[in-house]
Design a protein around this nucleic acid. Sequence first.
DNA 1: ATATTTATTGCAACATTGTTGCGTTTATAA
DNA 2: TTATAAACGCAACAATGTTGCAATAAATAT
Lengths: 133, 133
Amino acid sequence: MTNLLKDRKISETPFRKEVLAIFTKYNNAIPLSVIEKELKEYNRITLYRTIKIFLEKGIIHEITINGAVSNYAICKEECDTVAHHHQHIHFKCNRCGIIFCVEVDKFPTIILPKYKIEQLEIQAIGLCENCNV
Amino acid sequence: MTNLLKDRKISETPFRKEVLAIFTKYNNAIPLSVIEKELKEYNRITLYRTIKIFLEKGIIHEITINGAVSNYAICKEECDTVAHHHQHIHFKCNRCGIIFCVEVDKFPTIILPKYKIEQLEIQAIGLCENCNV
DNA sequence: ATATTTATTGCAACATTGTTGCGTTTATAA
DNA sequence: TTATAAACGCAACAATGTTGCAATAAATAT
Ligand SMILES: [Mn+2]
Ligand SMILES: [Mn+2]
Ligand SMILES: [Zn+2]
Ligand SMILES: [Zn+2]
């Protein structure tokens, strides 16, 4: 794996590496509360700023599903400073509450006459692999 | 049009009627700030509680698109106290910023092996009818 | 119509979440 | 190693949302 921080031309600080390590450790999206629990000690403001710059630099993406707090996940695709380019869906499990980034074979296309669609974001809610027994 | 408040068995108060009137006046989704501007005078807490009960009773639905504040729109479909049942997509215009509920001919279906999808929420971002010149 | 019951409202107080300016510290580059 | 640029931590603030409770208004039953 390449160095995400150097790639995006932002300073490689101990705190940023720590937060990044948490993201890579999880293979699903996580809310701030999980990051806070994982960090032994941290500064709230620095954490906010870290999330913000990770979002701006295309290191992570934000997932907001109705009612739930924002979740964040590493960008696996080639997102950059300019934009995020995702072709996966966001799945929220009704039982365990976890939000997953799930790849699909054929990402749907929608055509709306008169509208110009530049980006599609698809959220699914139901039961995840683990909970769908 | 039937009486949404009586139908959902909640008290018909002047304030609720006023808020409901604002929702019906707009034919797109609106954030709290728009409601606040439309109301001559109001109590912040009562407004929050009104939005909350409207959501619970299936009178309005919430739309949260990444980055933007929550928007709310009247439920045109038969939503009830139990759940919302929408088959339309949520479109956010990059130029005017307005969020629209847009009906589509064929609402996409997604199949994820192992996952059980109970609900799909589709958000599109681009240029709306008015801005797509 | 009036009284009784039940639900809503408004206030105060608080909780959570996110932001900004600024001096200090740390990382990067010369 | 020094100079420069960026990140950090503190304090202070702003925005957003919640809760208990007494006053008030709406719905319901006389
Ligand atoms: Mn994702
Ligand atoms: Mn809608
Ligand atoms: Zn699950
Ligand atoms: Zn527009």
